[in-house]
């Protein structure tokens, strides 16, 4: 059955499958979350009312964890969705080699730093009066 000679037989890429599925699911979720965000921040509340007090109050009140979770989910999904999109484009348009590895490394390091900083802020935030 094996007719690949000395080459290894192909094995479907589970990573690419998961990445593909993630893009679809996170896309739909982000649409809902971001629309919700837009409605809350710009339609229900007046844009002039939104300041430190507003956000700090929301994050510290009774539903604090829920709002933090909402914002964190948006952060995670948007970052991973965006980074995977960038990875896709870079892998399409940069040929394999040192330059591609370098650019992808920069992308991963920077986005990890953003993710870590964002997550840290979301969960360690204490309101200062």
């Amino acid at each position: 059955m094996n007719s690949y000679g000395s080459r290894p037989a192909p094995t479907a890429s589970t990573f690419e499958l998961v990445a593909w599925l993630f893009m679809r699911l996170s896309g739909v979720l982000l649409l809902i979350l971001a629309l919700g965000h837009l409605v809350i921040m710009h339609l229900i509340n007046d844009i002039g009312k939104i300041n430190y007090e507003f956000v700090a109050g929301r994050w510290s009140g009774e539903l604090g964890m829920l709002w933090r979770g909402y914002d964190w989910l948006m952060l995670i999904l948007a970052m991973l969705h965006g980074v995977n999109g960038m990875r896709t484009i870079l892998e399409d348009y940069l040929s394999p080699g040192r330059r591609r590895i370098l650019v992808l490394t920069v992308l991963y390091v920077v986005s990890f730093a953003f993710l870590a900083a964002g997550s840290y802020v979301v969960f360690s935030f204490r309101r200062v009066m």
């Binding site: 059955m1 037989a9 192909p10 094995t11 479907a12 890429s13 690419e16 499958l17 990445a19 593909w20 896709t88 399409d92």
Partner: peptide, 20 residues
């Protein structure tokens, strides 16, 4: 009868997943 093998081939990174 080679469905699985074919799916392994076109499921590679440079296969169906490269289609945008």
């Amino acid at each position: 009868q080679a469905k699985e093998e074919r799916l392994d081939i076109v499921g590679e990174k440079e296969g169906a997943w490269k289609c945008r």
